[in-house]
């Protein structure tokens, strides 16, 4: 989880990622940061995030992203 928080803080350090649950809805993450985020998560956790996982529900909070990462790691 710490590694994920580090990636997110690099994108925007002014957000409390442990509390914010609406990263997409509140426009904290936009289309350009998603491209960077997806590539960094894939690289750091050595997983492939297929297009079917690219939905707002998986990216609205750090917790949701973490769940997705764990699921993909299990599948791997």
């Amino acid at each position: 989880m710490d590694e994920l928080l580090e990636i997110l803080e690099d994108i925007n350090p002014d957000v409390d990622y442990t509390k914010e649950k609406h990263l997409i809805d509140h426009k904290v993450l936009d289309s350009f940061s998603i491209v960077s985020l997806v590539s960094q998560i894939s690289e750091t956790f050595d997983i492939e995030i297929g297009p079917q996982y690219l939905v707002p529900e998986n990216f609205n909070s750090a917790e949701a992203m973490w769940k997705m990462i764990q699921k993909l790691e299990e599948e791997d």
């Binding site: 997409i24 809805d25 426009k27 993450l29 936009d30 289309s31 998603i34 297009p51 079917q52 690219l54 939905v55 707002p56 990216f59």
Partner: peptide, 10 residues
């Protein structure tokens, strides 16, 4: 809507 551009599948 601009939020569509966050997730290209959508």
């Amino acid at each position: 809507p601009p939020e569509l551009f966050v997730f290209p599948v959508t």
